[in-house]
């Protein structure tokens, strides 16, 4: 049965989401988990795009949602990467809750 064009991409998106979610659960290192999250995000967007496909081209509303989603995803991923590096650089040792104790006696 000829699966309509959009469904191919939609199902790929679904599989990507599943794969990404599995990798998120299995991989322990935060960078790999960040990567997995990005794959899940891409999967969801692909699914949305696939289901929005029509002979006249993709649905503009879906495209706008996806673009907004992608920008938010990149903002969060970059923040996550920065936090991982910062954690590795300074660790949590000097991170004793700063607000609590005044330095010195």
């Amino acid at each position: 049965m000829l699966v309509e064009g959009g469904h191919v991409f939609a199902v790929t998106g679904a599989v990507l989401a599943g794969l990404g979610f599995y990798s998120f659960l299995v991989k322990r290192h935060p960078i790999r988990q960040l990567l997995a999250a990005n794959v899940v995000g891409a999967g969801v967007f692909l699914m949305l795009g696939g289901l929005g496909r029509s002979p006249g081209g993709a649905d503009p509303f879906a495209q706008a949602l996806v673009i907004t989603g992608i920008v938010i995803a990149v903002a969060l991923s970059a923040l996550g990467a920065a936090m991982v590096v910062r954690l590795a650089a300074c660790g949590d040792k000097d991170e004793a809750p700063l607000g609590e104790k005044r330095e010195g006696p």
Partner: peptide, 21 residues
């Protein structure tokens, strides 16, 4: 796996087509 199969199944029930263009 279960999640993906269910999701794929559900996705297949939705006919692709543009919504708001």
């Amino acid at each position: 796996l279960g999640f993906t199969v269910m999701l794929a199944g559900v996705v297949l029930t939705i006919p692709p087509g543009d919504r708001l263009s």
